[in-house]
């Protein structure tokens, strides 16, 4: 719609918008996170929701204890290999549209426990992650920044065309395989459809 016409109409008390703007505006300002924490990052997440940092300003103060009612999974803390299947299953149980924030060094890569036999080297090996926050743990401001980043991502989504979000693509997967406990490791150890090792540029 023409900007000039829009401004002219608004002077006359007529508000115009597009369905896309309205839809994205509604989604981005009412993100209900899933209420769960895995380690020390969860303490920062809790602090973010309390009065001092007040995540409610961004429309995300309602932490749901059920995945069926949640839009956003904040993976706050170390994902151990024993916990990974449950995290993936919780993600699968969330209805679309759903988003994931990987909060802190552990959730994005394993962090300081990366070489541990029991630690998953990043939750993005099994589920798609929208925003990664570095930090150990990230401060509440960093989580709020991740939130604003996610809101911007939602706001910029086109509802039609090849770039439309996953939940509007009929044959795009909404659930991802839950890894099984194997004899030596999780089976499979990663989901290659979700995660491929970034090329480090090193050669032998």
């Amino acid at each position: 719609m023409d900007e000039g016409l829009r401004s002219e109409l608004s002077k006359q008390g007529i508000f115009t918008t597009t369905l896309e703007d309205l839809y994205n505006w509604g989604r981005k300002n009412s993100i209900w996170p899933l209420q769960f924490g895995l380690a020390c990052c969860a303490i920062e997440m809790i602090a973010t929701t309390m009065a001092r940092y007040d995540l409610a300003r961004f429309g995300a103060e309602i932490f749901r204890p059920s995945p069926r009612q949640a839009d956003l999974m904040i993976v706050a803390g170390t994902v151990t290999k024993k916990m990974a299947p449950q995290v993936v299953r919780l993600y699968n149980q969330m209805p679309e549209p759903k988003y994931v924030i990987a909060m802190g060094a552990c959730a994005i890569s394993g962090g300081p426990f990366k070489q541990g036999y029991n630690v998953l080297k990043g939750i993005d090996r099994y589920i798609p992650v929208d925003v990664h926050i570095p930090g150990c743990p990230p401060r509440p401001e960093a989580l709020i920044h991740a939130f604003m980043t996610l809101q911007r991502q939602i706001d910029e989504q086109k509802l039609t065309g090849p770039d439309r979000p996953r939940h509007l693509v009929a044959d795009a997967p909404s659930e991802f395989p839950v890894p099984q406990f194997g004899e030596h490791d999780l089976v499979p150890s990663k989901n290659p459809e979700v995660w491929q090792p970034p090329h480090s540029g090193r050669t032998e």
Binding site: K82, K121, F181, G182, P197, S200
Partner: peptide
């Protein structure tokens, strides 16, 4: 108690070999 049922190794043994998930090491 820490690892799952069906896990075969004993991770704190000195000859324990970790599974090969070293494909991305920055």
């Amino acid at each position: 108690i820490l690892m799952w049922e069906g896990f075969k190794d004993h991770p704190m043994r000195k000859d324990y070999v970790q599974p090969d998930d070293f494909e991305y090491e920055p």
